[in-house]
């Protein structure tokens, strides 16, 4: 019964991964017949490649800040819409709406809003005061934060839904008994809601870290890694290197990227394991 799944998985995942380890130790350019074994040279080269190290920095900042913000806003919004009232149910749908649209499309939409001079935001600002202008996209330090904000705006609906499901599975009588025992709302949240949301938080943190560390579309749409290569993530760097005739090097970076993702995932897994609560 496992056969169709196993075959598909083997051919399109396991085999390429194994092959990748081999390719990462060659200087192959991806097109020619020539392929020389270079050992760990690609990995050594990586750590003296300034652009690659910068890409790590971008990936790590994006990959940690954005899950954090996604979870904070997701939890806040879940608490806000956790009600049967029609307005809240409608709000749920509105918040979830951007998540189902391609990040590429949303990225383009936001460029039209945020870009300097021609952007909608800039035009509105200038109407109020001509000296005001909004040019975060062109400033290396700020562009990444802009992308993070757009990303959180777009994808916060997912974590919200997971937290909402978690919230709705908490038995209501727990709150009643807490109230009888004299607990305030903050105390009830801290001692009942939050601990019982750990499983939801675990799923969210996992998904968001994996998704954010591999970020590709939204950066491509908003800045294409620019200005310069200020917002170039590892995924984009891999994409560029593999098209520029450095297939071996690109594969080596991909393997390093996996290790970089494994570290925060491992830490959260460890941290979460001790906090699991039995109902």
């Amino acid at each position: 019964m496992m056969a169709p799944a196993a075959v598909l998985f083997l051919v399109f995942f396991v085999l390429p991964l194994c092959q990748g380890v081999g390719i990462s130790m060659t200087d192959w350019n991806g097109f020619s017949e020539e392929k020389n074994f270079v050992g760990f040279a690609n990995f050594i080269r990586f750590f003296s490649d300034k652009r690659a190290l910068h890409a790590i920095q971008v990936t790590v900042v994006f990959g940690l800040v954005s899950p954090f913000l996604l979870n904070v806003s997701g939890l806040f919004l879940a608490l806000l819409v956790d009600s049967k009232r029609k307005s809240r149910v409608l709000l749920r749908m509105i918040i979830y709406l951007p998540s189902i649209i391609s990040p590429l499309i949303m990225g383009y939409l936001w460029t039209l809003i945020l870009s300097p001079r021609t952007g909608v935001l800039d035009q509105i600002l200038q109407r109020f005061n001509p000296s005001l202008s909004f040019d975060w996209m062109g400033v290396p330090d700020k562009a990444l934060w802009l992308i993070i904000m757009v990303n959180v705006w777009q994808f916060t609906g997912g974590p919200m839904m997971v937290y909402l499901a978690g919230l709705q599975s908490i038995p209501k009588d727990l709150y009643e008994s807490a109230k009888i025992d004299g607990a305030g709302r903050m105390q009830a949240f801290k001692n009942i809601t939050w601990p019982l949301l750990y499983p939801s938080a675990k799923i969210n943190i996992f998904n968001n870290i994996i998704g954010s560390m591999a970020v590709f579309d939204i950066i491509m749409a908003i800045t294409m890694g620019g200005p310069g290569y200020a917002t170039e993530s590892l995924s984009i760097y891999i994409y560029r290197q593999s098209f520029n005739g450095f297939a071996g090097y690109a594969t080596a970076i991909a393997l390093i990227m996996f290790l970089i993702i494994a570290v925060p995932i491992g830490i959260t897994m460890r941290w979460m394991k001790n906090k699991e609560i039995e109902m």
Partner: peptide, 20 residues
């Protein structure tokens, strides 16, 4: 193995996959 592979983002496999 499948569950573990969920931790591996798609882009990692891209170059060898392209060759295959």
């Amino acid at each position: 193995i499948m569950v573990l592979s969920m931790m591996v983002p798609g882009i990692i496999n891209t170059v060898p996959l392209y060759i295959m």
